[in-house]
């Protein structure tokens, strides 16, 4: 079985190791990965900032690059939500593109959603010693309704103690250009998030979106917190690699 990877612009450019982890984890499940090299971005940065024309041009290109790909896996709930939900808004006056967008949206899955809902593997028989707390990224949870899938993947890792933080479902304060336009508000939200994460005493802060992680990691570094930020794909990569080496 093969999937097509939409790695996202942020993972490609800032967190390439997250993309490698996705390929590793899928490979261990017997899934091959195709990567269309023409891919760039889904258009969300411009759309969120109000630059609809720019967003539409980039989104149209996305539809061309991924035409025919099935299924498409994305290590980001936010980018998946852009394609699945918000392309409907972006192309609301263009029935043809709207139809195309809808079709692609139906074949596209966020990484944990794909593992649990499509592959039906909520437990990867993985193991890793340590403790972690999980931040629920907004778009994955509230745009896509993906809630239990990542939790079951994390909860099934042998040796990993999951500690729930207060307000785990509350936004970390990233919000794209929001973080730059309203730095005081964004930082105040981030500090609440990092305080709640630190209060669990967990070794790792896990999230499913590289953008939210970039925001939280930037804050962790500046504050000098000891918690390690990690993408769910990286955690599953380590935990399944350990299992492999034990065999």
């Amino acid at each position: 079985m093969r999937v097509t990877l939409f790695v996202t612009c942020v993972v490609d450019q800032f967190y390439p190791e997250v993309g490698e982890s996705v390929v590793n984890v899928l490979g261990r499940q017997g899934i091959g990965v195709d990567f269309p090299a023409a891919q760039t971005c889904c258009g969300q940065p411009a759309f969120n900032a109000g630059f609809t024309d720019e967003a539409r041009a980039v989104a149209e290109r996305f539809l061309e690059v991924f035409e025919g790909a099935d299924p498409i896996v994305v290590p980001s709930g936010s980018c998946a939500a852009m394609v699945r939900n918000l392309y409907g808004e972006l192309f609301r006056d263009d029935p043809e593109l709207l139809q195309k967008a809808k079709a692609i949206g139906e074949r596209l899955y966020e990484f944990s959603e794909y593992l649990v809902d499509v592959l039906k593997r909520p437990d990867l028989a993985a193991s890793l010693d340590g403790s972690a707390t999980y931040h629920q990224c907004c778009h994955l949870l509230r745009e896509l309704g993906v809630d239990v899938q990542p939790k079951s993947l994390l909860g099934s890792i042998e040796g990993l103690e999951m500690r729930e933080m207060e307000q785990a479902e509350v936004c970390c304060g990233f919000g794209g250009t929001f973080a730059v336009k309203f730095p005081e508000l964004s930082t105040a939200m981030l500090n609440d998030k990092l305080d709640n994460a630190a209060a669990t005493g967990a070794d790792m802060l896990v999230a499913s979106d590289a953008t939210c992680l970039m925001h939280m990691e930037g804050g962790i570094r500046r504050r000098g917190d000891s918690i390690q930020p990690v993408h769910i794909a990286q955690l599953l990569d380590r935990a399944t690699a350990e299992q492999e080496s034990r065999v």
Binding site: L5, V7, V11, D12, Q13, F14, Y15, P16, G19, E20, V23, L26, G27, G32, V33, D34, F35, A37, A179, V180, K181, F182, P183, T187, L190, M214, H215, E217, G218, G219, R221, R222
Partner: peptide, 29 residues
């Protein structure tokens, strides 16, 4: 205008070898 970010948060450097290059050199997935 990015100073709003770095007023309270570090910002990651763009990777010199992006995922697309790494994927190519590992010979696909």
């Amino acid at each position: 205008p990015f100073s709003g970010w770095t007023s309270s948060r570090d910002f990651p450097r763009i990777a010199f070898r992006p995922f697309r290059a790494r994927f190519r050199s590992r010979g696909g997935g």
